[in-house]
């Protein structure tokens, strides 16, 4: 249910950015969410569509790109990626892993219309 807090912050960011850019309409909101964030996309979408309805960009659709986990072993240098959350190196058994991807939670871009479009 932290999706509601995330959606709350997201709607505020969308509103600020769209106003700054002079948009009159936002059609789509693209976010990237890493698997480590434990976000349920359907819940985030429900929360977003509810909360975006409270500002002037109501109707904007949320598009979520899920990013799998990608890690690199600092001992042997091998990399692996996938939705499997295992934090030991598959090749050498090392435990000192660098997270390359999977902890993202950011607003990527908006699609919208400005004045004169």
């Amino acid at each position: 249910m932290h999706e509601w807090t995330i959606a709350d912050n997201l709607v505020r960011l969308v509103g600020e950015a769209a106003r700054k850019e002079g948009l009159t309409e936002v059609s789509e909101v693209y976010v990237k969410v890493g698997v480590l964030r434990q976000v349920i996309p359907e819940t985030l979408k429900t929360a977003f569509s509810h909360l975006i309805g409270e500002i002037e960009f109501a109707g904007a659709e949320l598009k979520i790109e899920k990013i799998p986990l990608a890690v690199k072993c600092r001992d042997c240098g091998s990399k692996k990626a996938g939705d499997d959350l295992a934090f030991t190196c598959g090749r050498c058994g090392g435990i000192d892993l660098e997270i390359l991807a999977g902890d993202e939670l950011y607003l990527d871009y908006l699609e919208g219309k400005g004045n004169g479009e």
Partner: peptide, 8 residues
């Protein structure tokens, strides 16, 4: 398209 790239 408006690029934002900000942490939510």
């Amino acid at each position: 398209k408006i690029a934002i790239k900000e942490d939510i």
